[in-house]
Amino acid sequence: MNSDHISLHNKQFEPYLTADQLATAIGAVAARLNQDYAGQQPIFVSVLNGSFMFTADLLKAVTLDCEVCFIRVASYEGTSTTGKVKEVLGLTEELAGRPVIILEDIVDTGHTMRMLLETLGAQKPASLEVATLFLKPDCLQHPLEIRYVGLSIPNDFIVGYGLDYDGLGRNYPDVYKAV
């Protein structure tokens, strides 16, 4: 095994995407947001814990006047989704009549995103869109229109850049996939 591989909880991971590749994808999403929301003041709703790095880097490249808030939901245990979404930390900001963009690290089954779109949509925002760093189209179990996608990827289990395996691996600047 070469030194680029990492081990988390006795599971092996190999390099998948570099920090530079991620920065390019995030820059492209930010450019589209800057264009599409010119003259508006959107509120970005960042889904913790996984999206914290994506949110930070994306908002550095967003040139709009905007707000950011955070919501925490959980649906994963280990390497697979539980299929049940548990809201852990609620949203306190008023979204009615405002352009809202949900920031997510990864959309795979769509369970979490479906719940978030229903929950936030009930507040009657002016618009409600999703920006995700990663989309696994082959895993989607719900019809979702994700307008802003950094990278579409296959159904690999990945860690790094905010994504974890039972709490570990979020701090890596690159993304690794399970071997």
Rank of each mutant, 00 (worst) to 15 (best):
Ser3Gln: 12
Ser3Gly: 07
His5Gln: 03
His5Ile: 01
Leu8Tyr: 09
Pro15Glu: 03
Pro15Gly: 05
Ala19His: 10
Asp20Glu: 09
Gln21His: 06
Gln21Asn: 04
Ala23Val: 09
Ala25Cys: 06
Gly27Glu: 08
Gly27Ser: 10
Val29Gly: 03
Ala30Trp: 03
Ala31Met: 07
Ala31Lys: 09
Ala31Gly: 06
Gln35Phe: 10
Asp36Cys: 10
Asp36Trp: 12
Gln40Gly: 07
Pro42Gly: 11
Pro42Cys: 04
Ile43Ser: 05
Leu48Gln: 10
Leu48Val: 15
Leu48Ile: 14
Asn49His: 05
Gly50Ser: 12
Ser51Tyr: 02
Phe52Tyr: 13
Phe54Gln: 08
Thr55Cys: 14
Thr55Ile: 08
Thr55Asp: 12
Ala56Asn: 08
Asp57Lys: 07
Leu59Glu: 10
Lys60Gln: 11
Leu64Pro: 04
Leu64Ala: 05
Leu64Cys: 05
Asp65Lys: 04
Asp65Ala: 13
Asp65Leu: 01
Glu67Phe: 09
Phe70Val: 12
Ile71Met: 05
Arg72Asp: 06
Ser75Lys: 11
Ser75Ala: 13
Tyr76Asn: 12
Tyr76Arg: 03
Tyr76Val: 14
Glu77Ser: 15
Gly78Trp: 06
Thr79Gln: 12
Ser80Ile: 13
Thr81Phe: 01
Lys84Phe: 02
Lys84Trp: 02
Val85Lys: 00
Val85Ala: 01
Lys86Ser: 14
Glu87Tyr: 01
Gly90Asp: 02
Glu93Lys: 15
Glu93Trp: 08
Glu94Ile: 08
Arg98Gly: 11
Arg98His: 05
Pro99Leu: 11
Val100Tyr: 03
Val100Met: 10
Ile102Arg: 04
Glu104Cys: 14
Ile106Gln: 02
Ile106Tyr: 00
Val107Phe: 03
Asp108Gln: 06
Asp108Arg: 07
Gly110Lys: 06
Gly110Arg: 07
Thr112Ser: 00
Met113His: 02
Met113Pro: 02
Arg114Ala: 12
Arg114Ser: 07
Met115Tyr: 15
Met115Ile: 15
Leu117Lys: 05
Thr119Gly: 01
Thr119Trp: 07
Thr119Pro: 00
Thr119Asp: 03
Ala122Tyr: 08
Gln123Phe: 11
Ala126Glu: 08
Ala126Thr: 04
Leu128Phe: 07
Glu129Leu: 11
Val130Ile: 15
Leu135Arg: 08
Pro137Glu: 01
Pro137Ile: 08
Leu140Phe: 12
His142Met: 02
Leu144Glu: 11
Arg147Ser: 14
Arg147His: 14
Tyr148Asn: 10
Val149Met: 00
Val149Ser: 00
Gly150Met: 11
Leu151Trp: 09
Leu151Phe: 10
Leu151Asp: 09
Leu151Val: 15
Ile153Glu: 00
Pro154Tyr: 06
Pro154Arg: 10
Pro154Cys: 00
Pro154Ile: 04
Phe157His: 06
Phe157Tyr: 13
Phe157Thr: 06
Ile158Lys: 00
Val159Asn: 00
Tyr161Leu: 14
Asp164Leu: 13
Tyr165Asn: 14
Tyr165Thr: 12
Asp166Ser: 14
Asp166Gly: 02
Leu168Glu: 15
Gly169Val: 14
Arg170Asp: 08
Asn171Tyr: 06
Tyr172Lys: 13
Pro173Ser: 13
Tyr176Phe: 13
Lys177Leu: 13
Lys177Ile: 13
Lys177Met: 03
Ala178Met: 15
